[in-house]
Write a protein that binds this DNA or RNA. Structure first.
Lengths: 357, 357
DNA sequence: TGAGATAATGAACGCGCGTACATTATTTTG
DNA sequence: CAAAATAATGTACGCGCGTTCATTATCTCA
C-alpha cells in the first residue's frame, strides 16, 4: 500500500506550518500568493490528497448522503424501475453537489432503527426509499425528526406527520388514466392494485374510483375496495409474476371486463402475458393502461399506454433539498421547515387502448 | 441536532475508563463479565453508538467498498441492466460483509484519476464498472496497481495486465448462440455488435465467427469484421435506439439474412421494433437471439432467446474477493496474487427462433 | 522613524476512537 | 501466607485534519 502523504510532509517541503497547508487547501484567511504557490507546488510534488476521513472527522461532517434501501436477500433491487430511476436522480444531484452517495440496506420487518444510521455519523442526511406506513416505522421516523436528523421520504406519504417528502400526484395520474379509458368508451374497467401498505397504492385507487364515480359507474359513497364489484378489483405486489397470477383470477371474468388499469407496468405486463396464454390479445380484446412509464412499456406488443411518474426528478429534488439544507449548515434554532413536494404525473398514450365506442 | 454521546460519557456512567468501553465494544482482551454488562447497560441508557467516522480514522480503514460508475449527465445509469444487476450483486455481498457501499461517479473521457479515489482514504477497495481499454485508462489502472490499491474490473478484460478481473465467457456464450441458430438450420446469420472499445464486444464477435467458420460459412482465416460479408455485420452502442437504427440498415438486406445474433437484449429489442415497422415479424420472418437475458427478454413478443450472463454473481464475487482481501488485512510483502474469474454463460431458449430446416 | 494597525503565519489542541504499555487486582503455587 | 503468575483495567497518545488564539511580519501614518 502506497505510503500516505500527510500535510506534515507538505508543510516541511514548503517550509511552512501545517496550519498554513490547511489554510491553502481550504481557501481560508489571508494568504500571501507566494506562500500559497509554494504549498501547492509541494503538494503536487508529493502527490498529496487530503485524507477525507480525517477531514470528515475534524469537520464533524461525513460528506455522504445516505440512501436507505430495503434489503431482501437475492432480490436484484437495483433492477426495479422505481429504485433505479430514483437512484439515478439522486446520483445526478450528489455528483453535482460534491457529495458521495452511501448506500445502506435495511432489512424490512426487522426492528428499524433508522436513528442508528445517523448516530454513527457516517451520513449527513438520508433519503429513505421503500418506507411503509406502519406504526413501528412511523415511530422510528418520529425519532429521527425529534433528533433533528435531516431525512426525506420518497413516494411515501405519512399523513399527519411533518416529515420531508417528495411525492407524485398518483391520484391525479390514476384519475387521468381511467378518464382516458372512459373517453375511449370503456365502462367495465378493472383495477389491479399494488400492495396496500404503500401510500401510493391508495392514491391510485382513489383516482380510479373518483373517475368511476364521476362516470356514474360507482355509487357516490364508494370509497374502499369493498365498495367495488368483485370482478373489478384485483391485487398484486407490483411484480410481474403477481400480474400473471392476477391473469388467472381475471380470466373467468373477462366477458365482464373491457379494460384494465394496472398500478404499475410490471404487473400490466405480467397480466398481458397471462391473458395472452388464454388467447386474449391486449389492445384488441381488452384495453390496458399501466403505471410508471418504464422502459418496458415501450417494448411490449402493443406498446403500453402508461402514466409517467418522474421518479428520476423526485430523487434528484430530494437530494437537492437535503444537501442544500446540510450544506447551508444553518442549524440556528429549532426544527426547520419541512419540505413536501408533489410532482405532476402524465399520461403517455400508446397502442394498448383502441377506441371502443 | 441531537447531542453526540461519546464513549467518555459511557465510561463515566459505568465507572470505568474509556479504554474499557472501547474494549467492550470491540470484544478485545480479557474482560470481566460484570464490567462488560455495566458498560453495555450504560451505553444502552445513553443510546450510545460508536462514531463510525472516528472509528474509520483510528482504524485507518473506511469500511467502505467504492464502486466507480461512469457519469453521463441525465443518463439514468441505474436503469441499465448490466449496471443494475452488478450493483445488486455487490450490494448483497457488501451487506453480508458488514461494509457500506460508496458510489463514485467518474466522468468518462476526462482525465481519469483513479488513484485519487484511494488517496482520499474514503474507500478500502474499489470495483470499477464501465472501464474501457484505452491507453490512458490502462495507465491509470497501472498506477493503482503500482500503489498497491485493491481494485477489480468487471466485464472488461485488459490483456497483458495482471489486474483483478471478474468476467464472463462471452466468447463461449456467443458461440453457443450461433451454434443454436445453425442447429435450427439457419445459415445466413447476421451479427449486431456493440461498441468495440469494450473487450466483451470483441469476445462476442470471436464466438460468432468461430461458430460460423466451423460451419464452413466463413473462410478459415476470417478474424475481423472486415472479413465478413457486409450484409452480415452491423454495429450499435448497446442501446435500444441503436438497435432500431440498425434495423434501417438491415432492412434492405433482409432477403439475404435468415437470423440475427445481437450483442445485447436492448439492441435486439430495438431491432425487432424497427423491423416490425417494415412488416418483418421476429420468430416468423427471421430468427433472433439476444444477449444478457435481461428481464426485457422475457416480456417481448415473442420472448427472446438470449444468452444469460450472471452479472449479479459477477458483482457479488468481485465484492467478496476484494473484501476478503482487505478484511484479511494481510499486507505482508509485495504484490498479492491477482484474481481473475470467468463465469459461465448459458443459452436460454425461448420463442424467437423457430426450426428452419 | 517609531507607533499603531493590519496581514500573515505558527503553536496548540480538539474531533472520538483504537491500542500499547503501565499499573492494579486477583488467582495460583510452593 | 507470601511470592509469582495471570487477569483486568487505566493512562497516554496517535490517527490527519480544522481552527482558535497567539505571535510575528509588514504596511501605513503622523
Amino acid at each position: 500500500m502506497a505510503a500516505i502523504v500527510t500535510r506534515k510532509e507538505v508543510a516541511e517541503l514548503a517550509g511552512v506550518s501545517e496550519a498554513t497547508v490547511s489554510r491553502v487547501f481550504n481557501d481560508v484567511g489571508p494568504m500571501k500568493e507566494q506562500t500559497r504557490q509554494r504549498v501547492l507546488q509541494a503538494a503536487k510534488t508529493l502527490n498529496y490528497h487530503p485524507n477525507a476521513i480525517a477531514q470528515s472527522f475534524a469537520r464533524r461532517r461525513s460528506g455522504n448522503l445516505g440512501v436507505v434501501l430495503p434489503y431482501v436477500p437475492k432480490v436484484h433491487i437495483f433492477s426495479t424501475y422505481y429504485f433505479s430511476e430514483v437512484l439515478s436522480g439522486i446520483g445526478e444531484q450528489v455528483k453535482a453537489s460534491g457529495y458521495d452517495m452511501l448506500l445502506k440496506f435495511r432489512v424490512p420487518g426487522e426492528e428499524s432503527d433508522y436513528s442508528s444510521i445517523f448516530r454513527s455519523q457516517k451520513v449527513d442526511a438520508c433519503v429513505i426509499l421503500g418506507a411503509t406506513d406502519t406504526p413501528s416505522e412511523r415511530a422510528e421516523l418520529k425519532k429521527l425528526e425529534d433528533g433533528g436528523f435531516p431525512f426525506c421520504l420518497i413516494n411515501q406519504h405519512m399523513s399527519g406527520e411533518r416529515f420531508n417528502e417528495v411525492d407524485a400526484d398518483h391520484e391525479g395520474g390514476s384519475y387521468r388514466a381511467v378518464r382516458h379509458l372512459l373517453d375511449l368508451g370503456y365502462r367495465d374497467i378493472a383495477f389491479l392494485s399494488g400492495s396496500p401498505e404503500f401510500s401510493n397504492s391508495g392514491d391510485r385507487l382513489r383516482g380510479y374510483m373518483q373517475a368511476m364515480r364521476e362516470a356514474g359507474l360507482l355509487s357516490a359513497d364508494a370509497k374502499a375496495p369493498g365498495d367495488l364489484p368483485a370482478h373489478l378489483y384485483y391485487e398484486g405486489n407490483y411484480s410481474r409474476t403477481s400480474g400473471m397470477k392476477a391473469a388467472s383470477a381475471m380470466h373467468p371474468n373477462l366477458k365482464r371486463i373491457e379494460a384494465v388499469f394496472a398500478s404499475n407496468d410490471r404487473m400490466a405486463i405480467g397480466l398481458m402475458q397471462g391473458l395472452r396464454e388464454y388467447g386474449h390479445v391486449p389492445g384488441r380484446d381488452y384495453a390496458i393502461v399501466g403505471y410508471d412509464d418504464s422502459e418496458a412499456a415501450r417494448v411490449t406488443v402493443p406498446p403500453l399506454t402508461s402514466v409517467a411518474v418522474p421518479f428520476y426528478e423526485m430523487g434528484r429534488l430530494a437530494a437537492e433539498r437535503l444537501l442544500r439544507r446540510v450544506g447551508g449548515g444553518n442549524e440556528t434554532g429549532g426544527a426547520s421547515e419541512s419540505f413536501r413536494l408533489k410532482l405532476d404525473t402524465k399520461l403517455v398514450v400508446r397502442q394498448s387502448c383502441r377506441i371502443l365506442r
